[in-house]
Amino acid sequence: MENVDLTKEEKIKKEIRRLTSLFTKLDAKTKKAVKSLIENAAFMAVTLQDLQDTINEKGVTEKYQNGANQHGIKKSSEVEIYNAMIKNYSSIIKQLTDLLPKADLGPPPKGNGLMEFIKSK
């Protein structure tokens, strides 16, 4: 990752700047409303990357022991946190992209070829 030498706070600020730059065309009221969404998205993006690095290093499972006779392997704590956070991050990013003017999103994707054929008949 290119941001290896940056602190977590610096990475978050960099991500806030990157995300904020995508919303320059929004009116001032909307920009103010999305500020906390952008800040949360930036925090999650950086934290998710940290979790990915840890998961890549340690793996997706960990050993556990509950008492003398109860032990085994379970999904790692990092994986559980990652799974919950990625859902929240995806939700925030969807909310943010829904606010972008449609012209900024590029041309609409082509429809299903079969449906296009049916509609043309």
Rank of each mutant, 00 (worst) to 15 (best):
P108T: 02
M115N: 09
K13A: 09
T24A: 10
I86G: 02
R18H: 05
I55D: 12
I118V: 12
Y82N: 08
V79Y: 10
S90M: 11
I118L: 14
Q49M: 12
L48K: 03
T47N: 10
I16V: 15
K110N: 14
Y64H: 02
V4L: 03
I93T: 01
H71R: 00
L99D: 04
D5I: 05
L114P: 08
S36D: 08
S77A: 11
K25V: 03
K110L: 09
L26T: 02
K11F: 01
M1W: 09
K14S: 00
G111F: 01
A45G: 03
L105V: 00
R18L: 06
A42Y: 11
K8N: 11
G59P: 11
E78D: 15
K58N: 15
A84W: 00
A28E: 03
D5A: 11
K25A: 01
I93E: 03
L6P: 07
V60A: 05
L37T: 00
K74M: 14
S120D: 14
K119S: 11
Q70N: 15
N83M: 15
F43G: 06
A41K: 01
A68I: 06
L19P: 06
K8F: 13
T7I: 07
E10H: 04
V4I: 01
E78P: 10
K87G: 09
T20N: 05
Q52K: 15
L51H: 10
N66L: 07
H71W: 03
K58G: 11
T54L: 14
D104C: 05
M1G: 15
K31F: 06
K29S: 14
D104Y: 04
Y64D: 04
E62N: 08
Q65S: 04
G113K: 09
K102W: 09
L100K: 02
K102T: 12
M115F: 08
L37Y: 07
E15Q: 06
